[in-house]
Write a protein that binds this DNA or RNA. Structure first.
Lengths: 192, 192
DNA sequence: AAAATTTGCTAACGAACGTTAGGTTGTTTA
DNA sequence: TAAACAACCTAACGTTCGTTAGCAAATTTT
């Protein structure tokens, strides 16, 4: 299943790996060019600026995360089931592309305005989705939690370091990781 | 309780705030100087290099984390109690200085060798401490967890984003946050 | 009062940075 | 076959970077 990438996509992919490993600011266009085997100036035949790459990665991943939890959301289900589905969907996106996920999670702060503000608004909307499930679960007596925002941030935090250690060839596959995390975190919410 | 700081400590503190907010690479010595109200060159009367600041912050925090879990460790206690104590100790260090914690957690990768390798060794040793508690808990039947490394990383991940939202004047104080997180995470480990 | 230390300055260095201009080559389209 | 395009080059631009040299003033120590 060999996917053929356009030059622009190659550049984006290579840049993503560098942004993850060294950070956006510590990655120079000459580093990127070197990795691609061309001159730095040549990159500008395909992209407009260094930040354009960052923008494309950040907003593409934001879309992927939204689509994933939207598709996974099962209406008319209990809060526990809905939260489990959202967690699994989130983890699947994270593990499908750990490099782009790392950039999405850590490098967005180097976006300039108005992209920076737009990104934060999206991220907040994403968290609201989780917050609503938690609130529903509290009302239904499924969850016992001191603060819903606190709970959401803790859950997402626990999930969002997967990219630092996940390897597709590791002993746990994405599905197992997702369900293990989901049951562990759900148990944590049901404290008596 | 006004603490008088030496100029060197002032520089380190101001730099730490900038490193947290913009990242090490995106913070220039001229930014730092500007914040201090002096010229960039003047900073070099007090420090040897930009990286020296990063080194001091990273290794000072590493020490603080080690001391905290060492002091909190209660021998002859159950694994649950030991883990709870370690989590609370960890959270207290995190909340006592969120800026230095953020640098410790995210900016260490900009250390040059051999400091980079030394730092990673320390961090690994720290994780081993938690891993041993988890293993003890599994053997004693207190915890049911698929993989001890997995559990430790999940716990630390859940804790290590506190610095992004914690405010001393917020509605939860450090103690409450620590115990809430500890009970939530401990419950997660006791899944049936 | 002399010596030492602290704290800062101006000026400048060489290197690295993101990016642009203008040109060449090979491939695809009309 | 001509025109258009894709992909890359060399050369260079203006800027910013971390840092050094050398000096001046104030403060502290001896």
């Amino acid at each position: 299943m060999e996917v053929i990438l356009s030059r622009k996509e190659q550049i984006e992919q290579t840049a993503t790996a560098l942004f993850k490993n060294r950070g956006f600011s510590a990655t120079s266009m000459r580093d990127l060019a070197n990795q691609l085997g061309i001159e730095a100036a040549s990159i500008y035949s395909h992209i407009k600026s260094k930040e354009e790459i960052l923008q494309r990665v950040c907003f593409r991943m934001a879309n992927e995360f939204f689509e994933a939890i939207d598709q996974a959301d099962v209406r008319n289900a209990s809060a526990s089931e809905r939260l489990q589905a959202a967690i699994i969907a989130h983890v699947k996106v994270l593990t499908k592309n750990t490099e782009a996920s790392a950039v999405f999670l850590h490098e967005w702060r180097h976006l300039s305005e108005p992209h920076h503000a737009e990104f934060l608004a999206l991220r907040n909307r994403y968290e609201v989705h989780f917050r609503e499930i938690i609130r529903e679960g509290i009302k239904a007596g499924e969850f016992k939690v001191p603060d819903e925002k606190f709970a959401v941030l803790t859950i997402l935090s626990a999930l969002n370091w997967i990219h630092t250690w996940y390897k597709p060839e590791g002993k746990m596959n994405a599905e197992e990781i997702a369900t293990n995390l989901a049951t562990m975190l759900l148990n944590g919410l049901k404290q008596t």
